[in-house]
C-alpha cells in the first residue's frame, strides 16, 4: 500500500472513485505476498500491482465492476487453470486470493 499512496492521494484530490485490490492470501508459489496492493480509479487508471503482471488486467475489470455496482467488496481468487476464476491464471502454479473493494473509507 505504501507505494501507491501518492497516486491514491492524487485521485482523491480529483474526486475520482477508487477501488483497492489487496493480496490477502496465497497458496503455493505466489509472486507477491499478502499486503501487495493495487488501485484502480473510475477511468481505469492503475497503480501498484498484485502479481507479476499475470492477473492485473482481470483485476482492473473486476474493480471497475465493483465501482459500477457499488458493491461493498468481494474476494476474488486467481489460480492455475482454475475454471471458477477468470480465464487468466498464474503461470507459477500458485493461487492468489484478492480482496477488492471501493476505497470508501
Amino acid at each position: 500500500m505504501r507505494e501507491i499512496l501518492g497516486d491514491i492521494d492524487r485521485w482523491r484530490a480529483q474526486n475520482k472513485r477508487i477501488a483497492v485490490a489487496r493480496v490477502v492470501d496465497i497458496e503455493g508459489s505466489g509472486p507477491r505476498d499478502p499486503g501487495a496492493a493495487m488501485a484502480v480509479n473510475e477511468d481505469g487508471e492503475v497503480c501498484g500491482s498484485v502479481s507479476g503482471g499475470c492477473v492485473e488486467g482481470a483485476v482492473v475489470a473486476e474493480a471497475l465492476e465493483i465501482l459500477k455496482n457499488k458493491s461493498p467488496g468481494r474476494l476474488v481468487k486467481f489460480g492455475y487453470s482454475d475454471d471458477e476464476a477468470f480465464a487468466v491464471g498464474l503461470t507459477c502454479g500458485g493461487v492468489v486470493h484478492l480482496f477488492i473493494q471501493p476505497l470508501s473509507w
Binding site: 490477502v24 461493498p72 467488496g73 468481494r74 480482496f99 473493494q101 470508501s104
Partner: peptide, 12 residues
Amino acid sequence: LTVIDGPNTGAT
C-alpha cells in the same frame, strides 16, 4: 483490519 467475507464485508 478489513472484513473480507461474512457479515459487514468491506468494514474497516
